[in-house]
Measured scan of single mutants.
Amino acid sequence: MATDAALRRLLRLHRTEIAVAVDSAFPLLHALADHDVVPEDKFQETLHLKEKEGCPQAFHALLSWLLTQDSTAILDFWRVLFKDYNLERYGRLQPILDSFPKDVDLSQPRKGRKPPAVPKALVPPPRLPTKRKASEEARAAAPAALTPRGTASPGSQLKAKPPKKPESSAEQQRLPLGNGIQTMSASVQRAVAMSSGDVPGARGAVEGILIQQVFESGGSKKCIQVGGEFYTPSKFEDSGSGKNKARSSSGPKPLVRAKGAQGAAPGGGEARLGQQGSVPAPLALPSDPQLHQKNEDECAVCRDGGELICCDGCPRAFHLACLSPPLREIPSGTWRCSSCLQATVQEVQPRAEEPRPQEPPVETPLPPGLRSAGEEVRGPPGEPLAGMDTTLVYKHLPAPPSAAPLPGLDSSALHPLLCVGPEGQQNLAPGARCGVCGDGTDVLRCTHCAAAFHWRCHFPAGTSRPGTGLRCRSCSGDVTPAPVEGVLAPSPARLAPGPAKDDTASHEPALH
């Protein structure tokens, strides 16, 4: 009773807030009518008042009428009001819900409408889902798969039609296919003929059939049928067999079959498995989609049935006599038709004709302190090069084509190399640097090759510096006499390219 009084008091307290929050009759008014909170006449009256005075006034009048009803109607109103779709449509209802007392429970059932309790003993237990329907569909599909699609060729003596089998029958139906081979029951999904010589313990000319048996419980189990008994694959494991010639990621696949039913060829011909030897223990289905393919039931050349050999690369099948050149017997292992072999060759040939990528240039590290003349020119003028003790990398590039010797140069053309002071002394051009340390401070000019250098860098042994005729380390061993002091540049003949010694390969005349 306390809860009923509290709900009535809360409705009177929030009546105006609810009326202002509800700006549309749908969905709240319609939901109240659906849950029998508002009768039909009051529903029509509220809609009429909404058209006349507006939605807030109409709902305020409806809530005032609701306060005169019993506690069950008020409880049902609060339940409908706080439904998710009403809270989404009328956003101003959320503060009312947040301020609702926590001790007021809106989930209690309506009085007088409590459903009768059902004894637990009368409640049926839930049924577990079964796979009976899938099993029945598999039974119905198996006879259809064994139905012949056409008439065999005159040369083929193997013609068999499976008798119709009602689904209610649980007995196995067997077809006489000759040579002791028996087909599987209607619940078998796949059958492959297997030679009895590969099964340990088999006697006589009995041949087993590799099947997948579907049981009534819905589970499946792969086994071997020899005669009327089934054997699990673990009985046929043979770890010492060295003649297993397995197909790549293979499961067994029928390579020879008669049109209309699988079996042995007439005249004692023995149908073979995809792999010879003992049956392997793992009978998992292969991951290669080509091995799941269903080959055609007629020859791809003459479009006739009979004894066919199936290609492992495509769905086509052929007569042995229709092949070019014809085959006398079934080859062992994987067999592919000429079209598949030709496609494989065409895929391999473009790969062989692809040009080989060019090898990157060989990189040879230079000892610290040495650099090529090109690196000396590329440096920024007026700045010493940083990191001189790091190992430089010199790339061996292809030799350029031989060019004509340089033409003779006048001494005026070499004027930018040297600057003559007032006393006739050779001065260095701006930006000249030593080729060893890279520093341009207090550098000297070689009178023979006009290269800038430090005496301490080229002659670290402490050799005394002569007063005139300074030469760098590369030119100090040259027998050519030094030019007379005061000459602007060496003779043009000295600039012609010539053979250089091994220790002077990195010091070429550089223009500054």
Rank of each mutant, 00 (worst) to 15 (best):
T3S: 09
A6E: 14
A6Y: 15
L11G: 00
L11E: 01
L11H: 00
R12I: 00
R12C: 00
L13H: 03
H14V: 00
H14N: 15
H14P: 00
E17R: 00
I18Q: 01
I18H: 05
A19V: 01
A21E: 06
S24L: 01
A25H: 00
F26S: 02
P27M: 00
L28K: 08
H30S: 02
A31P: 01
A31F: 01
E40F: 00
K42Q: 05
F43E: 00
L47S: 04
E51A: 02
E53D: 05
E53H: 04
G54N: 00
C55Q: 00
C55W: 00
A58P: 00
L62I: 00
S64Q: 00
S64L: 01
T72R: 02
L75Q: 02
F77Q: 00
W78A: 02
F82K: 00
D84L: 01
L87P: 02
Y90M: 05
R92E: 00
Q94L: 06
L97G: 01
S99I: 07
P101S: 00
P101T: 00
V104R: 04
P109D: 10
R113E: 09
R113L: 09
K114Y: 15
K114I: 10
P115H: 10
P119W: 15
L122R: 07
L122H: 04
V123F: 14
P125K: 08
K131P: 02
R132S: 01
A134T: 01
S135F: 12
E136K: 01
A138L: 13
A140T: 12
A141P: 09
A145G: 14
T147D: 07
P148A: 07
P148F: 15
S153N: 06
G155Y: 12
S156H: 10
L158S: 06
L158P: 06
K161I: 13
P162R: 03
K164Y: 05
K165D: 03
S169D: 13
A170T: 07
Q172S: 06
L175M: 11
L175W: 15
G180N: 13
I181M: 09
Q182I: 00
V192L: 10
V192R: 06
A193E: 04
M194G: 07
S195F: 02
G197V: 12
G201A: 07
A202T: 07
G204T: 10
A205P: 06
A205R: 03
A205Q: 05
E207L: 02
I211P: 01
F215V: 03
S217F: 04
K221Q: 05
K222G: 04
C223L: 08
Q225A: 10
G227W: 06
F230Y: 04
K235H: 03
E237D: 10
K243E: 04
N244F: 11
K245D: 02
R247P: 03
S250Q: 00
G251H: 10
G251I: 13
G251R: 05
P252F: 09
V256L: 09
P266L: 09
G267S: 08
